[in-house]
Design a protein around this nucleic acid. Structure first.
Length: 603
RNA sequence: GGCCUGGUAGCUCAGCUGGAUAGAGCAACAGCCUUCUAAGCUGUGGGUCUUGGGUUCGAAUCCCAACCGGGUCACCA
């Protein structure tokens, strides 16, 4: 807005002075660096030739003309080719007067078609871990951000509830579980199932080892591989698991019953984790219910001749002319693969929601998969394949490298949240922050702080980038962290409470017309919020929101340090500062909500 | 090997649609609580933006090459 007005003013002035029209996209603004006086800076280097002036001359002439034309500009100065414009206090005050009570400031009304966002997408054979946490937080947050920016968002989850991996857990439970349940063991269902999955793997490895030939260690690499493959094929455990999968597909009542029971344990466990994490879905799809849908699409593709069948009966899509490879869509036994299921699920979503976009929050190791998915859909005549967007995020690494479930270096989601909350409690107690709260309120606060720290730590990093999770640093509550922002909010609330206790009621009318430096910096920053929100939505980047709330909190803390609020003698200015406090607090709440981070009133 | 992606302070990260002397936080050091919550504020030190070319008034940012790291190229998901 400000930029647009200034741009027009610049162009108009330029025409007046030089009779030429400068290219619009060249007229760019940036914030004036703090060491110079001004708010906005135009770089005039690109227009020197057009005007027939050297940059400094040009900037001076333009500044004089612009200040003459508009009372929005209070002052200007020129450094080399940089024209620094000081915006009048009136402009900022008008902005503040208009928006300081707007609790929805920056948000746009929701309209248009649906945007379907899939995230989480767990397997039902193990509990959620750190990687899922990044996925879930991103999916949730991007949804909130897009909603705030005017999109109609539908959150969906696709649970991978079928396949050989679930059979492994079931088989292990049957063999060694002794009929145990989440109730009998006191274990969360997802963890219980995960334990049996690990147990299967352990027993399977033992069996394979026992089947290896005696001279295995003396073999060369290739022979070793062959021997191992042979042993794995001979494994009765694996055979039993496969048989179970076949029975499952054949709707064997016993297997199905066990499968339903055990999956339910997992879902109950997931529900607890999701709830604690603060994420939810409008719709949950299950692969067991959708995996057949893709097959119909494949059949259609065969009839249209865009897919083909090999001699061994497997079905493929040839994408070599697009620079990709051939892609298998049905195995030779006619069963479907991951891609087949995704084709069907996508079709179902289009039917159910008629979306303008299908966004998939999935790790970047699947970039190729989604590239193929889009192209295959388009081949099948589904132009909306192009509306698929893979929101791919980077891996989470630990200080000693990647997480590997087999090496036991996985950071479990439930454990991590426990630790964060426990640390929040320890720090709060140490600082004596929660002593006036009831036990219930205190627990709620620890949860808000612990989860706030975790969410901020994960979301402040650009989603595209690989990030490092250092357990020690992530539980730091100082500096660029969630609790820092929360603390700032709590402080503001404290001031507002004190004001109320003193009988000062927040007024709507703003009676101040000039700005002191720290007051102005805060208002200028808040002015930029709608642009930040818009950018964050377009870039699908919660990190931009996180950066903003940190900057705003930091700015407020400086203001708080330098300017007294309640002790300000001038009543109008005191009221104004309270109004600033109120707007900052509201904006911190408004923005942090998009990250799923709560703002406590005291801490 | 082909394709994709990253390399910024000791560490974690911003900045990347080209602009002024490259920024935060952590860690280190030095200050600030009889005064609105010190989970805070202020200051100091710390950089050949991996390297080498190119484009131009100007490059961490764009292009090319090299080096190093990660991902992917399954009848796994």
């Amino acid at each position: 807005m400000l930029e647009e007005v200034l741009r027009q003013l610049f162009i108009k002035s330029f025409k007046t002075l030089y009779g030429q029209e400068p290219p619009v996209q060249q007229v760019n603004f940036q914030k004036t660096r703090p060491e110079f006086e001004g708010d906005m800076t135009i770089v005039v280097f690109p227009f020197g030739k057009l005007a027939g002036r050297n940059p400094e001359q040009l900037a001076n002439e333009m500044g004089a003309e612009m200040i003459k034309e508009s009372d929005m500009i209070a002052k200007f100065n020129v450094v080399k080719g940089f024209l620094n414009l000081l915006i009048s206090d009136k402009f900022w005050m008008d902005f503040f007067k208009e928006n300081h009570e707007n609790r929805e400031f920056g948000r746009k009304p929701v309209s248009g078609k649906n945007v379907v966002i899939e995230y989480s997408s767990p397997n039902t054979n193990k509990p959620l871990h750190l990687g899922h946490i990044r996925n879930n937080l991103l999916g949730w947050s991007v949804s909130e951000i897009m909603k705030a920016n005017g999109k109609k968002v539908v959150r969906v989850n696709l649970v991978n509830d079928r396949g050989i991996h679930i059979c492994k857990s079931m088989l292990a439970w049957l063999k060694w579980g002794d009929g145990c349940t989440p109730e009998s063991t006191g274990k969360k269902g997802d963890h219980l199932i995960g334990d049996f999955y690990v147990l299967f793997d352990k027993k399977f490895k033992e069996e394979v080892k026992s089947l290896l030939p005696a001279n295995y260690d003396t073999l060369d690499e290739k022979a070793k591989e062959e021997a191992k493959a042979k042993a794995e094929a001979e494994s009765t455990l694996m055979q039993e698991a496969r048989e179970m999968l076949v029975k499952w597909e054949a709707n064997d009542p016993e297997v199905r019953h066990l499968w339903e029971t055990m999956n339910q344990w997992v879902y109950d466990g997931f529900d607890v984790t999701y709830k604690r994490m603060g994420v939810s879905f409008e719709k949950i799809y299950y692969e067991s219910q959708t995996y057949l849908l893709g097959k119909a699409l494949v059949q259609e593709g065969l009839e249209k001749g865009v897919l083909y069948r090999r001699d061994d009966n497997s079905v493929w899509c040839d994408l070599r002319d697009e620079g990709l490879d051939e892609k298998l869509l049905l195995r030779r036994d006619g069963t479907s693969v991951y891609m087949t299921q995704d084709l069907g699920t996508a079709q179902l979503r289009v039917k159910e929601y008629d979306p303008e976009k299908l966004i998939y929050v999935v790790g970047n190791e699947q970039i190729y998969h989604f590239d193929v998915l889009k192209r295959v859909l388009v081949r099948l005549g589904r132009e909306w394949g192009n509306d698929i967007e893979h929101l791919s995020y980077g891996m989470v690494e630990l200080p000693n490298g990647k997480m590997k479930s087999r090496e036991g270096t996985v950071v479990d989601a439930d454990d991590l949240m426990d630790e964060m909350v426990a640390t929040a409690k320890a720090v709060s107690d140490e600082l004596g922050k929660a002593k006036d709260l009831s036990p219930e309120e205190a627990d709620k606060l620890y949860h808000t702080i612990g989860l706030g720290a975790l969410k901020y730590f994960i979301l402040k990093v650009d989603p595209k980038k690989t990030m490092l999770f250092n357990p020690e640093e992530s539980i730091d509550f100082n500096g660029n962290t969630g609790p820092f922002v929360q603390y700032t909010h709590a402080r503001i609330c404290s001031v507002l409470r004190k004001a109320e206790e003193q009988g000062i009621k927040l007024e709507s009318e703003v009676k101040v017309n000039d700005l002191q430096p720290k007051e102005k910096e805060i208002i200028v920053m808040m002015y930029g919020w709608p642009m930040v929100l818009n950018q964050a939505a377009e870039n699908r980047s919660p990190a931009m929101i996180a950066n903003f709330i940190f900057d705003l909190a930091k700015e407020f803390n400086q203001f708080y340090q330098e300017c007294s609020i309640l002790k300000e003698p001038d009543a109008d200015r005191r009221m104004f500062r309270l109004q600033v406090c109120d707007m900052v607090a509201a904006l911190l709440r408004n923005a942090s909500e998009l990250l799923g981070i709560g703002m406590p009133n005291r801490m």
